[in-house]
Simulated scan of single mutants.
Amino acid sequence: MPQSRWIALLLWPVALVLVTWTLSQMPLAGIGDTLGKLSWQQWLVWTLVNLLVIMVSTERWRRLGCMLGKAPGFLQMLLIRQAGQTVSFITPAPHFGGEPFQIYWLYKRAGMAVHRAVLSLALDRFYELWINFMMLLLGVSLLLLAPQSGMQAGSQNSDWQMILLLMMTLLAVLSAIAWLLVRQPALLSARLEKAGARWLSSPRLKTLGEHWHLMGSDLKAVVRSQKPALLTALVLSLLGWALMIFEVWLVLAFFDIRLNAVELALILVAMRLALLLPLPGGIGTLEAAVFWTFQSLALPVESALGLIALMRLRDVVVLLSGLLCLRALQTARPAPTQPA
């Protein structure tokens, strides 16, 4: 049986079981009553904002792929991204887990060279992580500089300082990796090749060193000649974050809640930190973060339920659409593989 068939047979049962469990853990019982108060105009605006977030993230990845050479079109990239996001959502780390499948689909279904598929995805994830940590760093800094934000002093302030230190450390590590990628790609490639030398006797991995060398060469070419494309990816990353901030502000406005910048930062930081914890989709942690922040800010519990309901409704739609994308990718005809 072809390897792709084995992957399909293993992926689908696991995915369906985990999706069923995830849906069973979501607060679906009271969603109808809470969301029935929204007008169709509010539904439309909220839907458009979420579609824009997905489109911006997809376009960033597509542009990173295009600057490396031949890359799939927007629709194909969207299918691969959403399918991978579904796999990532149902894994213990909600931001990661679907990358091997995305690389496989780029190679097998879109005909992209393996090293370029890996490099485009690595660059996309780097932008996502770096901007996420940077925004969290800015948010925590804002909270620490504004003690009148509704937080208690003392132990909580100390907790935010620890989080700030963690964000700074993660940013420093990512920035050091970026410096190596930009300034010394050959050095990093050599280190990776040395680390994986013990497995190179495997028939499946015998070309691993060649792929690493090709990635290093492509990185050099990108840094020298594709600076505008890299800057565009940065702008798209910032735009995606701006849309996510706007979405939370918009949902709160739906429930007649108007917050200042510090209060909004508290909710956003708590929600994003909850999604970094090793639970599928942040089930439980996101809800706890929202209730804690609403209690700290003396906001109505009904509004917290509305925010959670909309966030989880979006997750349900993403999960179901991602499963459809998985099915579409498995039934699509493979593209001819691009030569290295």
Rank of each mutant, 00 (worst) to 15 (best):
M1G: 07
P2G: 04
R5T: 08
I7P: 02
I7K: 08
I7V: 13
L9V: 10
L10W: 12
W12S: 10
V14T: 15
L18E: 14
L18V: 14
T20G: 15
T22N: 13
L23H: 07
L23E: 09
S24H: 14
Q25G: 13
Q25K: 08
Q25V: 03
M26N: 00
G32I: 05
D33Y: 00
S39C: 02
W40E: 03
W40G: 00
Q41I: 00
V45L: 08
V45N: 01
T58C: 11
E59N: 11
L64M: 12
L75C: 13
M77P: 03
M77W: 02
L79F: 08
I80F: 10
Q82M: 12
V87W: 05
F89S: 10
F89V: 13
A93D: 09
F96H: 10
P100H: 06
F101P: 00
Q102S: 03
W105P: 03
W105T: 02
L106Q: 03
Y107L: 02
Y107D: 01
R109A: 00
R116H: 04
L121C: 06
A122C: 13
F126Q: 12
F126K: 09
E128K: 13
L136D: 08
L136P: 08
L137S: 14
L137Q: 15
L138N: 12
L143K: 04
L145Q: 13
M151G: 04
W160A: 09
Q161I: 12
L164S: 14
L165C: 14
L166C: 14
M167T: 14
M167A: 15
M168S: 15
A172Y: 11
I177C: 09
L181W: 09
L181R: 04
R183E: 14
R183H: 12
R183G: 10
Q184P: 01
L192R: 03
A195V: 06
A195Q: 07
S201C: 14
S202N: 11
S202G: 06
G209P: 09
H211V: 09
G216M: 00
K220D: 04
K227S: 11
K227E: 06
A229G: 06
L230G: 01
L231M: 11
A233H: 01
A233M: 06
L236A: 07
G240Y: 00
A242Q: 13
L243H: 11
M244Q: 15
I245K: 07
I245Y: 09
E247H: 12
V248N: 10
V251M: 08
A253R: 09
F254C: 12
F255T: 12
R258V: 14
V262D: 10
L264D: 02
L266A: 08
L268K: 05
L268D: 04
A274F: 03
L275Y: 11
L277H: 04
L279G: 05
G284K: 06
L286C: 07
E287D: 15
A288P: 07
A289E: 04
V290S: 00
F291P: 05
W292A: 12
T293Q: 04
Q295G: 13
Q295D: 14
A298M: 12
P300K: 12
V301Q: 14
E302P: 08
A304L: 11
A304R: 09
G306E: 07
I308A: 05
M311C: 02
M311F: 05
M311Q: 06
R314K: 14
R314G: 03
R314E: 09
D315S: 07
V316P: 04
V317L: 09
V317H: 01
V318C: 09
S321D: 01
G322Q: 01
L326I: 01
L326C: 01
R333P: 00
P336E: 03
P336C: 02
A340P: 06
